[in-house]
């Protein structure tokens, strides 16, 4: 992330698919030596245990969030062309699929892991909300890798806040402005709407930054009909790679119609 109104990092990626698969890792904790960014603070990994970084198909670095024991949420533009990978630490295979409307602003993808994602003991997966689209002026928490004004990704996790703007203009997206804004490496990362106490829920996925007079961060919203349909359809199609049997996919959801959430979901 970077301070809003600072210089934007630009990435023009090749659209050719690379042969190498996606590789997911968990980021390092910030140290005393890690650079500061204005408007953000160094994040402690223990507070964000379900956040992963990965190298995407075209060599880009992206973020993913574990939202269930075998589910990762990320941006579609990070998996263009090839959608398979592994979680480095555990070697667990990962297969990703883009939202069917990804050409029409729905820049999100879901990834299914062949085995349970291993988090540190006692740590929870993040919870998504498919009913809540944040309203204008809501302050969201953003997570990112702290690209500073020059030099790119620092490789450690930062957190900060930004305020929602233009929430209702389109169903698929919303924007935030002020505070921190998304920067290189933050694609696919989650936008969190804080609840009471330490509760939080994922309401969007980082997609793009827009430079100009008032720097904006663009997020793909989760609370819309096509995305609910995508989640439900995708969850019902995942199969065990060995047996081919359909696997019931558990997703940490805050939803009246899905009151039963798996254990280990962040409240």
């Amino acid at each position: 992330m970077r301070r809003a109104l600072a210089i934007l990092l630009l990435c023009i990626s090749s659209i050719k698919a690379y042969a190498q698969p996606l590789e997911f890792t968990q980021p390092a904790d910030a140290t005393e030596a890690s650079p500061e960014i204005i408007g953000g603070s160094k994040a402690i990994m223990a507070n964000w245990p379900a956040t992963f970084v990965f190298t995407a198909t075209s060599g880009e670095h992206c973020t993913a969030t574990a939202i269930g024991p075998q589910v990762l949420l990320t941006a579609e533009h990070c998996i263009r062309g090839a959608a398979n990978g592994t979680i480095k630490a555990s070697g667990i295979a990962v297969q990703c699929e883009a939202h069917p409307f990804h050409n029409s602003n729905y820049d999100i993808a879901l990834c299914f892991t062949a085995a349970r994602i291993v988090l540190a003991a006692g740590q929870d997966f993040e919870t998504i909300d498919l009913k809540l689209k944040p309203a204008d002026d809501t302050r969201l928490s953003l997570l990112g890798f702290g690209c500073i004004s020059r030099g790119g990704v620092s490789g450690v996790l930062y957190e900060g806040t930004s305020v929602v703007k233009d929430a209702t203009a389109q169903k698929a997206v919303f924007f935030t402005t002020g505070g921190v804004s998304v920067c290189a490496g933050d694609s696919g990362g989650a936008a969190y709407q804080p609840g009471v106490g330490s509760s939080r829920r994922v309401v969007g996925v980082a997609s793009a930054a827009i430079s100009g007079q008032n720097d904006l961060s663009r997020f793909t919203a989760l609370a819309n009909g096509p995305t609910i349909v995508f989640f439900e359809d995708w969850a019902g199609r995942q199969r065990d790679p060995k047996t081919g049997a359909v696997i019931p996919v558990e997703i940490c959801l805050v939803d009246k119609d899905h009151a039963d959430a798996p254990a280990d979901c962040h409240i």
Partner: peptide, 20 residues
């Protein structure tokens, strides 16, 4: 004037920096 003002730029980071 910042060029590409208003164009959304995806915020994935490429290891080899791209040049406009």
């Amino acid at each position: 004037v910042l060029l590409a003002s208003g164009i959304p730029i995806p915020v994935s980071d490429k290891a080899g920096k791209a040049q406009m």
